[in-house]
Design a protein around this nucleic acid. Structure first.
Length: 440
RNA sequence: GGGUCGGUGCCCGAGUGGUCAAAGGGAGCGGACUGUAAAUCCGCCGGCUUCGCCUACGUAGGUUCAAAUCCUACUCGGCCCA
């Protein structure tokens, strides 16, 4: 990627469907061919973690860096205090200082991990717009920024127009947001030589206002490039699981395993787009993969690759391997033959219940253990389940009267318990403290 | 305040003295099918020490051999009148 010519970059982005809109395309092409350019994308700390929807603009920075350009990831410590009205139908709640600090602490490392800050020639930068915003007085902001922008201009932006037309209206605070963003762009232009801002398509108005400000203040010119908002085939915004759960990038908020699962469950119709837009796989590879996928959709090759690529990108290769292995076990795999370390990973990813090894000596212990683990709600349900052939221990079906024997334990420790096809629990048996002490 | 109708299992909703753990539907859970989807089909679906027992039909009493079903009080909700 390192030596890729700039116009090749644009062509690649085009092929991936990553260009929603841009200012003067020919001029941009010429500018990219002329040499490295500095580009930035802003991320407001609206939550303690970025989510899947943020991946696309974040990866844009990476794509530009990989093509030899200088990326700036901008954390919106200042803009996050105000709230961007773009793409929203209602007023945001203001964040208090604590929440803002917490959110920033969460997303800054995430921004960091996607870019290379030590790359010779074009290292990435991570800036926080608080640095040049908090010290600015209201009066000077009005004089130095406000004077260059007309309200007519601001009011004509979709983000504002839509809200003006709504019952709820728009607060002066959120109305002012675009000025802050424009100010950021202008500041970066003057101080960091940043010529281009990228963002989701809903950012177009804000970005262009920044360009206007730059032109009027400095007679300079820059570029805007927006990426499409990721949407699912049903038109809704991407970034949530089928169940409506947000796909967080933070491992605490969503474990790598669940992240991987969220991606595995991608619709066939969306696989190609997501592979193109969210991974760094070459376009030809994606096309080959998609072709293979269509031949045998049940293998879910596309989904697997997507899940692996993104989990690796976000959580690292070993986490991706573990999530993949755990996933294979849960869906269709066989517990027997798993090594201890995979089982240990599994113990973190699926519901796991620890039991005292002594419980194994009780012949009738299966039903109570199932109950304690929350697998069944009553003895009656346990018996029903067994009668209906719905329970398996270490992937062999068991019927009424089944018992857990020590010899069944995997690595003398684990028992994989499946209820039906989708519910998987792990039992982990260990010695009680007393037993351990007695043995010395 | 008066009248009236009603409060049933996770939800909706039948049932008006025994054959009622209570029809039917939904949700949920198994099974088949399948691509970790949807649809469809089958089974289950109060608890327990499960051929029996216990707990349940707003709450508390009562009548009866027997009550979700009848009576009384209370309570909560809908509607109508004031």
């Amino acid at each position: 990627m390192e030596g890729m010519a700039p116009n090749a970059l644009l062509a690649d982005l085009e092929a991936r469907g990553l260009i929603h809109d841009s200012t003067d395309r020919a001029a941009l092409e010429a500018r990219l061919e002329a040499g490295p350019i500095t580009v930035y994308v802003g991320f407001d700390p609206t939550a303690p973690s970025l989510h899947a929807g943020n991946l696309l603009p974040l990866l844009m920075l990476k794509r530009f860096q990989d093509a030899g350009h200088r990326p700036i990831a901008l954390a919106g410590g200042a803009t996050g205090m105000v709230g961007d009205p773009s793409g929203r139908s209602d007023e945001r709640n203001l964040l208090d200082d604590d929440a803002l600090a917490r959110h920033l602490a969460g997303i800054v490392p995430q921004l960091r991990q996607f870019l290379d800050f030590d790359r010779p020639g074009n290292p990435a930068k991570l800036l926080d717009n608080r640095a040049w915003t908090v010290g600015v007085s209201y009066l000077s902001f009005l004089r130095d920024v406000g004077k260059f922008v007309t309200v007519n201009q601001m009011a004509s932006k979709d983000s504002v127009k839509n809200r003006m037309a709504s019952d709820q209206g728009i607060s002066y605070t959120e109305f002012s947001y675009m000025l802050l963003q424009a100010h950021d762009f202008a500041w970066l232009y003057e101080n960091e030589g940043c010529e281009m801002q990228m963002g989701g398509s809903d950012q177009w108005g804000n970005i262009v206002l920044g360009l206007d400000l730059i032109r009027r203040k400095t007679q300079g010119s820059g570029f805007a490039l927006t990426v499409p908002l990721l949407t699912k085939s049903d038109g809704t915004k991407y970034g949530k699981t089928a169940g409506g759960e947000t796909i967080w990038l933070d491992a605490e908020a969503m474990s790598p395993y669940r992240f991987y699962q969220a991606l595995i469950q991608t619709d066939d119709a969306e696989v190609r787009t997501l592979l193109l837009q969210l991974t760094l796989l070459p376009v030809e590879d994606v096309e080959t993969l998609v072709a293979d996928h269509l031949v045998a959709p049940h293998l879910r090759l596309g989904q697997r690759r997507l899940a692996t690529e993104l989990t690796t990108l976000v959580h690292g290769a070993s986490a991706a391997d573990a999530a993949g292995a755990a996933s294979d076990v849960v869906f269709g795999g066989d517990a027997r033959g798993l090594d201890a370390s995979t089982l240990a990973v599994l113990a973190h990813e699926i519901p796991t219940m620890a039991f005292d090894r002594a419980r194994l000596d009780d012949e009738g212990s299966l039903v109570p253990l199932l109950r304690e683990a929350g697998i069944v709600a009553s003895n009656g349900e346990a018996i029903r389940l067994l009668n209906q052939n719905g329970l398996s221990l270490n992937d062999s079906k068991v019927g009424p009267g089944a018992v857990i024997e020590r010899s069944m334990l995997l690595h003398d420790r684990y028992l994989l318990v499946r209820k039906g096809k989708k519910q998987v629990h792990l039992f982990e048996f260990s010695d009680s403290d007393e037993a351990r002490r007695e043995r010395g």
